[in-house]
């Protein structure tokens, strides 16, 4: 019953995406141009990386809202460090450093969650405020834009594919590969490793997972460390794509990412969620965010439409579940 419901949920999202794509494309063929598609991929790059981390936490039955603060913390600290001490460092160094900072901050979350058994929402709400506050008062609060390290500027200008268009050039940035690699890694992790199954087990029935012999502490350190690491990568990618490190960026978008993951079928109670579903959820949110202008919806309407999409995306499954639940009454004594 539930299995098919989840399937239907992913199916529903896929159908919505197809309908939206067909409709927007019908109304405005610009949608199908390379430059638009490349833009969409570019917008999905960062959200996609975040979403994989959030998926893993949600599957484990937790939630992390601090990932945006971790991302901007990692990005800004790394860029500031490079500008000051190592302006000639290669781009991979930037990514390694941002990932390690992210990992470290994620471990702080893990420490509070596993050592004191505190609710994950509250811990990460607290660390969101702490990380961002610390970044702003202790590390810096000015945008770094003009004297970026050359390796970063060069990375921002790379193009995987360049296609000459009527007006200008459509560039596909290779950062999308980061997202693809992260997604494949997360899929393999969740579906083909015991650690991944442990994450599902933890989200499904914590006590049973303990009895089965899973080390819950290790799993939690992994989960929050993993989210931190991905957030570091996502933050760095964001900075590289936008050619700036702004300490006020990214924070505030956490709920968008969570909404994308939940639209993709992950449930906040834990134990459920897939990489495929998450990709669909991200796709829907990105298209809605970027393409409405193509069908003549002015940008001021953007938030309204996003809100309605979230409500429909969560409302339809809720109604379905209610109907199913009504039919199930009476099986209570099974």
């Amino acid at each position: 019953m539930f299995r098919s419901l989840i399937k239907r949920n992913e199916f529903l999202v896929a159908v919505t995406i197809i309908a939206l794509v067909l409709y927007i494309g019908f109304r405005n063929p610009v949608f199908y141009t390379y430059s638009n598609i490349f833009d969409l991929l570019r917008s999905g790059t960062v959200v996609g990386i975040f979403a994989m981390g959030v998926l893993v936490v949600i599957v484990s039955g937790g939630i992390d809202v601090s990932f945006t603060a971790i991302a901007v913390f990692a990005l800004y600290s790394t860029v500031k460090f490079m500008v000051t001490y190592a302006p000639d460092a290669p781009i991979w160094m930037a990514f390694v450093m941002a990932s390690l900072i992210g990992l470290g901050l994620g471990m702080i979350n893990a420490f509070f969650i596993s050592k004191f058994h505190l609710p994950t929402l509250i811990v990460t709400l607290g660390t969101l405020s702490m990380f961002h506050g610390f970044l702003l008062f202790a590390i810096g609060n000015q945008i770094i834009r003009n004297k970026l390290p050359p390796s970063l500027t060069a990375f921002a200008r790379t193009a995987l594919v360049s296609i000459q268009m009527d007006r200008g050039i459509a560039n596909l940035h290779p950062a999308i590969f980061i997202t693809i690699v992260v997604a494949i890694f997360t899929w393999l992790l969740l579906d083909y490793t015991m650690l991944g199954r442990g994450i599902y087990a933890l989200g499904g029935a914590r006590e049973a997972a303990e009895r089965a012999g899973f080390n819950i502490n290790h799993i939690q350190y992994f989960i929050y460390g993993f989210v931190g690491l991905l957030s570091g990568i996502a933050g760095m990618t964001f900075g590289a794509l936008n050619r700036q490190a702004n300490p006020q960026d990214i924070v505030g978008t956490e709920l968008n990412v969570i909404a994308a993951v939940v639209l993709g079928g992950a449930t906040l109670t834990g134990g459920r969620g897939t990489v495929i579903g998450t990709i669909l959820g991200v796709t829907l949110v990105v298209i809605a965010n970027n393409s409405l202008i193509l069908i003549g919806i002015p940008p001021v309407w953007q938030r309204v439409v996003i809100g309605i999409i979230i409500l429909i995306g969560t409302g339809l499954p809720a109604i379905q579940e209610r109907r199913a639940g009504k039919a199930m009454v009476g099986l209570a004594d099974m």
Partner: peptide
């Protein structure tokens, strides 16, 4: 949305947060 449609409150109000803020933008134009 919470009582009749049955959406989890955090998601329902996340959606309406966006909706109400969006309407404010639409009304004021920014």
């Amino acid at each position: 949305l919470v009582a009749k449609v049955g959406i989890t409150p955090i998601l329902a109000t996340l959606g309406t947060w966006s909706l109400y803020t969006g309407l404010s933008y639409v009304i004021t134009g920014g």
